[in-house]
Design a protein around this nucleic acid. Structure first.
Lengths: 160, 160
DNA sequence: ACTACTTGGTTGCCCGAAGCAACGATCAAC
DNA sequence: GTTGATCGTTGCTTCGGGCAACCAAGTAGT
């Protein structure tokens, strides 16, 4: 506890353990990510596939936006986004209008129907999370949210 | 802070906000999960695909184990596990020996080579995490690890 | 002991997600 | 105005994963 401050760079044993724990738990979570979000999405709405939910969330909070930005934000190629957006447009959940300032780009926005569906899905997911975290005190839930937010912010500007 | 204990069930406004924050950040993390673990795995070892890492971790800490248990733990079907294990066996990273107590089951274990590769990959991943979390004080890293662990434990016995 | 059901594991078939490359269309710069 | 970069879309492929069928091996019922 005393030598930690003296040596800022050498790989401390306790430091190693802390990173290793994060690495371990993150590996578990990421490995289960598919099954988890599928499980969440399945109960929310059969037709609104799990992947689409993440798109709608982002579109809502940053519309109007271009699909390239969405792709960069989610760390996937533009091709993937394009296909998923096509599906969402056919379902009438989003609209793609040409950007008046850039003839190449399209501006994305939620339709009223899309907005309604998103809010339904969100409250359903919140309900599932509520039952999952039922045993936690509210303060811990809040803390988990903050830690996840901080972690997500780290990967924001990164092209890893 | 006073009324929370009195009313254990009504959906408090602050409570709602807390769950909503977790839901939001979790959605982001899960949506990026593919790209993230792919990014981690790519730099670790080109031939050891990202999904395999999670299997090796679990096999190491719980060997000898059966593939069904592995499937249940990772929330995927036995078919998926079977295929991935076949690949790992062909690479010489794991061994599947018949269970002496149950003629149907196979017992999984890491080979020395598999153990070596796993440790290499783990320290590489820890290194990446270290650069990612470089700005965090050690205590926060530890806290993140604990919160993730608690969250993962919630989904442990669950068949969601 | 013979049959019937259950469980562990593998394989075939299919689907969805995602990357890569190529393309048309549109800016931007020189 | 020609060249180069950028935005979006589409074909092709790969990979992960679910579903169902199957075999082998336990387990239970009679």
């Amino acid at each position: 506890m005393t030598e930690a401050e003296i040596a800022p760079r050498p790989p401390t044993a306790g430091e190693h353990e802390a990173y290793c724990a994060v690495e371990r738990q993150l590996a578990i979570l990421l490995r289960r990510a598919n099954a988890f979000s599928a499980g969440m999405g399945r109960k929310v709405h059969p037709e609104l596939d799990p992947g689409a939910y993440g798109l709608l969330v982002r579109i809502e909070q940053s519309s109007p936006m271009r699909s390239s930005d969405l792709a960069a934000y989610l760390r996937v190629g533009r091709a993937t986004i394009s296909r998923q957006l096509k599906g969402l447009e056919e379902l009438g959940l989003i609209s793609r209008s040409p950007d008046p300032e850039d003839g190449r780009a399209h501006l994305l926005a939620l339709t009223p129907e899309g907005s309604r569906r998103l809010h339904d899905a969100r409250s359903a997911r919140e309900g599932q999370l509520r039952t999952l975290l039922a045993a936690w005190p509210e303060e811990d839930v809040r803390l988990l949210g903050r830690m996840l937010e901080r972690f997500n912010m780290l990967t924001e500007g990164l092209n890893l």
